[in-house]
Design a protein around this nucleic acid. Structure first.
Length: 581
RNA sequence: GGUCCCGUAGUGCAGUCUGGAGUGCACGCCGCCCUGUCAAGGCGGAGGUCGCGAGUUCAAAUCUCGUCGGGACCGCCA
């Protein structure tokens, strides 16, 4: 139908008879017998010189045949890739007329209400930005698939219809027609199957797998999303990290042309201490400063009883933070669980040769404490100090939030700083109902061998062979080495308070295969949309998904979800209750 | 379940604080003019449930309450 793409024509085609096809990007009328039609396809735009009697308007789908001609002297358009040439003596065939689009299909649509873009997503997708993002998405998929295959991984698909599992995210559920009253669950992830593939001797499995979770939507979360899911046998942590690293570095290189540096590692405990989060953004320096010992003897009540005192030094920020903004920051700190926040503006040297600290609580500090504080934070006049005193975890987390608010660039701003966070705690917190520790990752995660002796005596100090991958402060994914030894699994269940028969009932179909010889194995999964969004420079994964859903989960284009026919319900053995008041 | 922000023509906005006739801008759309434009230009025109519903008022886009929709975040996402 066509001989060329619009965007690939240039001076080398001058004199050729060509046929191109696409959408009318713009029409500029000049007189009775002269008009310019900018024809657009996915590759770009080319100008066609037509007779003004031709009846084409914006977004008409047309086929244009004509001669590629060098533009007359002085009429070249340097801002257009095809700006040196145009198609002349053009004949235009309308393939499909079009109503005016409900919003402009150029970069101005970036400002249009997202609901309008989503309602007409098929029009939004014609835009350069969306074309680019979907093509980047495709490139990333291809690069990752190639990296996995190259490393000996086998791509295997796993079922979408599976049993419900008690742990984890809320599931989407599908009624069974043949077994009325019974339901399948859609996979939150292929976790169970991929471990069984290891028992099945696949050795190295991967899948770009669709996962579904019925949890609230966010900028980085959709009901349905894709994971690069992988699992490998006869490996240790280093092997898994190396295989994943290869794929995400390839992905970044495929998009940007630049291969990021090897991915550094940080222990979870160090990440919390230094950055106040398990997903640190390494693109800015600001780190938490340990101050617990500085205030060991303090008489300031808010500090005296705290388990941990830490601070941040925002260099030169004192002048930027007036009383109102600091009050707002204090509210932020409180919303993340702090009892309060202490701020201090560093002033000039006082009579005693120590820098004066301007703060509502300055009067409660001894000279020694003030001196140590200035020293420890390397404070200089004009700096702003923020201090949090609480139990260790809260102190870290709150300061981690403040750190991000003070210095974090937008997630989509380069450079790309991948990070491994390793040695996660095996157990996190205590289950309110049972009083037992809760698994940090999942109950099949292998404890760090050095800590196995402490499983029963001091479970909360046990590290897991679990690790996260972080990019620019976004958690991309997580994984672990799994327990392949039934006795160790029993011990972990015992810590969790899961009895043998309960384990059999809840996880039997998954654990019984391990009776027949399970290889040591471990794996990983990371969110493709998050990776693609960051690589594409987008802050919201909706921008790199063809048909995403807004926060309500209602699809503004198709109207899903919809009520269904009573007959259909009857066949499924499902009765709909009136809404709960 | 919660906190904060937003909703005015097809699109993006101003107007809302301090109530006074849908007052207005840009783009788009329709018509006419125009022989080198490229976000072409000129002239003219059409287009409004100010998200919806109550309330206050002589009078509500504007104030109050409720509600719907959207966004960011908390909870949630092993």
């Amino acid at each position: 139908m066509r001989t060329h793409l619009c965007g690939e024509l240039d001076e080398s085609n001058v004199g050729e008879q060509v046929t191109v096809a696409g959408w009318v990007n713009r029409r500029r009328e000049h007189s009775q017998h002269l008009a310019f039609v900018d024809l657009r396809d996915h590759s770009g735009i080319v100008q066609c010189v037509v007779d003004n009697t031709v009846d084409v308007r914006s977004e008409y789908v047309v086929k244009v045949s004509g001669t590629v001609t060098r533009r007359p002297e002085g009429t070249a358009n340097e801002s257009l890739a095809t700006g040196q040439i145009e198609i002349t003596e053009a004949t235009v065939e309308v393939l499909s007329a079009a109503e005016p689009p409900p919003f402009p299909l150029d970069e101005r649509a970036d400002e249009v209400d997202e609901m309008v873009r989503l309602r007409y997503r098929y029009l939004d997708l014609r835009r350069e930005r969306m074309q680019r993002n979907l093509r980047i998405h495709s490139q990333v998929n291809a690069a990752i698939r190639a990296a996995m295959v190259r490393q000996g991984f086998v791509e295997v698909e796993t079922p979408m219809l599976m049993p419900t599992t008690p742990e984890g995210a809320r599931e989407f559920v599908v009624p069974s027609r043949q077994q009325p009253g019974s339901f399948y669950a859609l996979p939150q992830s292929p976790q169970l199957y991929k471990q069984l593939l290891m028992v099945g001797g696949l050795d190295r499995y991967f899948q770009i797998a669709r996962c579904l979770r019925d949890e609230d939507l966010r900028a980085d979360r959709q009901y349905e999303f894709m994971q690069l899911d992988m699992e490998m046998s006869f490996v240790d942590v280093d092997d898994v990290l190396a295989a994943v690293e290869e794929s995400v570095l390839d992905a970044a290189e495929a998009v940007t042309g630049v291969r990021p540096d090897a991915v550094p590692r940080i222990a979870w405990h160090d990440a919390m201490n230094r950055f106040g989060t398990d997903k640190p953004d390494l693109r800015f320096e600001l780190e938490l400063i340990e101050l617990t010992d500085v205030f060991a003897e303090t008489e300031f009540k808010a500090f005296a009883s705290a388990g941990a005192i830490k601070g941040l030094n925002a260099r030169g920020a004192a002048a930027d933070w007036g009383r109102n903004k600091l009050d707002g920051l204090t509210d932020t700190a409180k919303s993340f669980g702090a009892k309060g926040m202490v701020w201090m503006k560093v002033g000039a040297e006082g009579d005693d040769g120590v820098l004066v600290l301007d703060s509502p609580v300055a009067k409660f500090l001894s000279d020694t404490e003030r001196k140590s504080l200035v020293e420890r934070t390397a404070a200089e006049p004009g700096d702003l100090l923020l201090l949090i005193a609480d139990e260790w975890h809260t102190t870290c987390e709150v300061l981690g939030e403040l750190r991000n608010r003070l210095g974090r660039p937008p997630v989509n701003e380069g450079p790309y700083r991948y990070l491994w966070v390793v040695d996660f705690p095996m157990f996190v917190g205590v289950d309110d109902a049972t009083g037992r520790p809760k698994p940090g990752h999942h109950p099949f995660c292998h404890p760090h061998p050095e800590d196995i002796p402490k499983l029963e005596s001091d479970p909360m100090s046990v590290r897991a062979w679990a690790y996260d991958l972080v990019l620019n402060g976004w958690e991309l994914g997580s994984g672990s080495i799994r327990i392949h030894d039934r006795e160790l699994q029993k011990r972990v269940f015992a810590v969790l308070g899961v009895e043998d028969d309960e384990a059999e009932a809840r996880f039997g179909f998954f654990l019984n295969p391990f009776r027949y010889g399970a290889p040591p194995h471990g794996g990983f999964a990371y969110g493709m949309e998050r990776l693609v969004a960051i690589l594409a420079g987008e802050e919201n994964i909706r921008e790199i998904i063809a048909f995403p859903k807004p926060q309500s989960g209602l699809d503004p284009m198709t109207g899903a979800p919809t009520e269904i026919d009573p007959d259909q319900l009857a066949e499924l053995g499902v009765r709909v209750l009136p809404p709960i008041e």
